[in-house]
Write a protein that binds this DNA or RNA. Structure first.
Lengths: 150, 150
DNA sequence: AATAACTGTAATCACATTGGCGACGGTATG
DNA sequence: CATACCGTCGCCAATGTGATTACAGTTATT
């Protein structure tokens, strides 16, 4: 692996689908532990991933007993691009940030590559925007309530 | 940085532009050391990056005194997608390879995400294919001989 | 009020990848 | 033969990810 396995995006999507499906069908908040069990990762990791999503308004959390997580927006309007933007918005897709070369050749090439990077990032976002959490719920054959969050 | 800075692609492109420009104008092989100096990285690193490119036929190398590297194909036909394929062809762009969840929800989501991954990878390759090493030489305002390799 | 069940966050650890660095052998030039 | 390269190995530091533990804060339940 050249790129260290970045589970955050996958975990986030999984959790959102879970919240949009199970959570809304059963009308309850869901704890980090249950989410972690479902995703096969650590509860703390789940909370770390969900933190930024909460800031972005995609989920809500309730502390205390019977607390937990609920989806914070209409699943039909949560495009995968939004999740991506929240979690990896700043990271370059091509992973270039090469050492800036001293020579004239390098300076020009670096500039051009940055332009390519922007193009590629835009293309990625475009593809991700084509699917929403609600789409995933449907495609994964999960029955779910649809509509704005409770 | 979520993604560790992966300089390999940037270094490879830089070196190819250098070979297509300086190397062919001056009609000589170029040593790893000179390439490393131009790219501000280690000579060993340059050789490690160029190894796969040689296997792919994009460059040639000559051992021994007066040895060094030459470009191995017409720069106009070396699209950035080829370089990408050689160096990062196997790595997922989205970095998902999340832990396979046990529950039914997860299995379905994982499958869908893999489909998205394929779409996104294709989009990235498509954008990269729009530019060739020869294009970069031109855009970087470097005078260079154009045509098939010597 | 006391307890239990959660979130929220910090600290630490193991692990993997990247890239710098040194060493040594192979090979072509002069 | 001496020199100047490539080619590859091994070791090292730095970095990022995720697991784990611990602890503080908040809320429902009894």
């Amino acid at each position: 692996m050249a790129t260290p396995t970045n589970t955050q995006f996958a975990v986030a999507v999984h959790v959102l689908v879970y919240l949009a499906s199970v959570g809304r069908n059963e009308q309850r908040s869901i704890g980090s532990e249950e989410l972690a069990g479902s995703t096969a990762v650590n509860p703390v990791h789940v909370r770390r991933v969900l933190g930024p999503l909460r800031t972005a308004g995609l989920v809500h959390s309730k502390p205390g007993a019977k607390g937990g997580w609920e989806i914070g927006a209409d699943p039909r309007e949560i495009g995968l691009d939004r999740v991506w933007a929240v979690l990896q918005g700043d990271d370059p897709v091509l992973g270039l940030h090469g050492p800036s070369p001293r020579c004239a050749v390098g300076a020009g090439v670096q500039e051009i590559l940055q332009g390519v990077e922007r193009e590629v990032s835009a293309a990625v976002v475009d593809r991700l925007a084509r699917r929403s959490i609600a789409d995933l719920v449907t495609e994964a054959h999960l029955e779910a309530a649809v509509g704005p969050p409770r």
